[in-house]
Design a protein around this nucleic acid. Sequence first.
DNA 1: TAAACAAAAATTGGATACAGTTTTTCTATT
DNA 2: AATAGAAAAACTGTATCCAATTTTTGTTTA
Lengths: 223, 223
Amino acid sequence: MTMPVRPYDAYAPATIASRQVAEIVEALRRDIVSAAIPPGAPLGQEALAARFGVSRMPVREAIRHLEAMGFAVTESNKRTRVAELSREDLIDIYEMRAALEPLALRAAIPHLTNAQIDEAAAIQASLAGADALTFGQLNQAFHMTLYRPSGRARLLAQVDALFNAADRYLCIAKSPPGQREKSDREHEALLEACRLRDVDGAAAVLLAHIGDARGVFEMLDWG
Amino acid sequence: MTMPVRPYDAYAPATIASRQVAEIVEALRRDIVSAAIPPGAPLGQEALAARFGVSRMPVREAIRHLEAMGFAVTESNKRTRVAELSREDLIDIYEMRAALEPLALRAAIPHLTNAQIDEAAAIQASLAGADALTFGQLNQAFHMTLYRPSGRARLLAQVDALFNAADRYLCIAKSPPGQREKSDREHEALLEACRLRDVDGAAAVLLAHIGDARGVFEMLDWG
DNA sequence: TAAACAAAAATTGGATACAGTTTTTCTATT
DNA sequence: AATAGAAAAACTGTATCCAATTTTTGTTTA
């Protein structure tokens, strides 16, 4: 299964009106997540307009979306810059994930169909051997597939945003050996609990899974 | 104590670059929260530009911020409309508040100074007799004052956004008699637990407080 | 009278233009 | 040679303009 161009709707809290803007946002999101454009780097409107072959107007829109996603920061009259990464932010992201994702999963399981569980399983299967950027997207898709039946728009949007935020850290972290396998096992356990419609069991597995993922990042050493 | 013009920073997840845009956002936020502009009403760029005496450009920026806040919805090439309210959304908001606010409070208490607690107490004292719109802002300020020392930027931004979202419902709900008094007592209990630096106690009070607030809204009857 | 269709008006997304601010570069001074 | 300051270049925020789409209005037809 090859990863199609990711529909922006998959992670957009607010839908993006214009296709053009959506493409710019997606391109920049990838560049920022992969650190091709590193933290602190300037995102000049004119330079981006030239790069994408459009006027500054759609670029401005895109930048606003990146700001809303927490990927960029702008001070008045100054050039937008890629948001910095920090240990505190990482902790923030994982505490919020741990608080919100079980909520989404619990609300989703009663509405979860077998087809949806199979869909998640298919994504999990396609996850083998993916590079960090693709892994992040597929992992996100896997989880969101299980949460989406909850129908909680606001909650889903926030969880999605947290995955995006975590992606940036995931891409710079070097996973210890065996991490992927561990994650795989946890995903399988999660699927199994979902198949049994075991709400408490699934929530417990999920919480442990999130905690584990956080543990990986804790290995990053910075201030 | 009269309510000063609310600094946009107080609730902006991403800082707004321009003062002009910030003022438009704030004016529209008030109108939407108070339902002066009701759910579903169109927010035409030209009409707003005329109202604020500026070109459409800053209005467009402001609208994008309102979208990011969940206050407005835009479909491609169509006029932006004020976001609808729904029972599901309200549940969403309160479940998220219940999940996130205790996190913020627990992280904040170890850093909370007596001065900050006094500040919150002062806000609580100024709350008497306020109309719904002002009450919402002061209530938000009270809580955020207690959470801010946590230093968790992302978490704080999200909690703040949830308060804003809840405000819209608060303004259309008719509180049952005694609700304000009950809220007052809970705020006092919260302050007391903070003064004692009783993390678990404060979190418990807070959780009950949020649950109570939700109960008020459940009285609204719709679909 | 109500529905369907067509023309007109209004509105949005994007391009271009300009004023004010920031950033860079260059020069002069210690 | 390093620093301070001034001039130049670059960039952002806002205004204005244009093409494309949507919304409204008015007319015709069943």
